[in-house]
Amino acid sequence: MKFVVILFLLLIVASLGSALFFLMRDKGSGTRTVKALTLRVGLSLALFLMLMGGFASGLLTTNL
């Protein structure tokens, strides 16, 4: 489960980086930036729901 969380975080950062690249390259005239940011939001939402499900099912626990 930890591997999946780290993978999602890396994908989110990569999507954010690609959005910045498309913004600089297209000068705001294309839709690639919006698509990359939409993908980032979708990945973030999926990660949040996965973490909430993991805590609810007991698959993830805190170390307190």
Results as ranks from 00 to 15, higher is better:
2 K>P: 00
32 R>P: 01
41 V>W: 03
34 V>H: 09
52 M>Y: 12
26 D>P: 03
29 S>A: 10
11 L>S: 11
13 V>E: 15
22 F>I: 02
52 M>H: 02
4 V>D: 13
3 F>S: 08
37 L>N: 01
12 I>S: 01
6 I>C: 07
58 G>H: 07
49 L>Q: 07
6 I>P: 02
43 L>M: 08
13 V>G: 03
22 F>P: 00
1 M>H: 07
38 T>V: 13
57 S>T: 08
61 T>G: 04
16 L>S: 04
57 S>K: 07
34 V>S: 06
3 F>K: 15
54 G>R: 00
9 L>N: 09
6 I>Q: 11
51 L>V: 11
39 L>Y: 01
20 L>Y: 07
40 R>C: 10
41 V>K: 13
23 L>A: 15
60 L>H: 11
29 S>I: 03
61 T>H: 14
57 S>V: 10
28 G>W: 02
18 S>G: 05
22 F>A: 00
38 T>W: 03
62 T>H: 05
26 D>L: 03
52 M>E: 04
50 M>P: 01
11 L>F: 05
17 G>P: 01
46 A>D: 02
56 A>K: 14
36 A>L: 03
17 G>S: 12
33 T>D: 01
15 S>K: 03
2 K>L: 09
14 A>W: 02
31 T>M: 11
59 L>C: 14
47 L>R: 07
20 L>T: 15
14 A>S: 11
37 L>C: 06
33 T>K: 06
63 N>T: 12
32 R>G: 04
54 G>P: 00
9 L>H: 10
23 L>T: 14
60 L>M: 10
45 L>V: 09
41 V>T: 13
57 S>H: 05
40 R>P: 00
34 V>F: 12
39 L>I: 12
57 S>M: 09
57 S>A: 12
37 L>H: 02
8 F>T: 05
56 A>R: 11
63 N>C: 08
48 F>A: 05
59 L>Q: 13
34 V>M: 08
59 L>D: 07
19 A>N: 03
26 D>F: 06
34 V>Y: 08
40 R>A: 11
52 M>G: 02
48 F>T: 06
40 R>D: 10
55 F>P: 00
53 G>I: 06
38 T>C: 06
50 M>S: 10
11 L>E: 10
10 L>W: 11
9 L>I: 13
63 N>E: 10
1 M>C: 06
45 L>P: 00
49 L>S: 14
7 L>C: 15
53 G>C: 05
14 A>E: 05
36 A>Y: 04
6 I>R: 10
47 L>C: 08
43 L>G: 01
38 T>I: 12
53 G>S: 07
9 L>P: 03
47 L>T: 12
40 R>V: 08
41 V>E: 12
57 S>P: 06
7 L>F: 14
52 M>K: 09
17 G>F: 02
51 L>E: 00
42 G>E: 09
62 T>I: 11
44 S>L: 13
39 L>W: 02
32 R>A: 11
35 K>W: 11
33 T>Y: 01
30 G>K: 03
26 D>T: 12
39 L>M: 05
39 L>D: 01
38 T>Q: 07
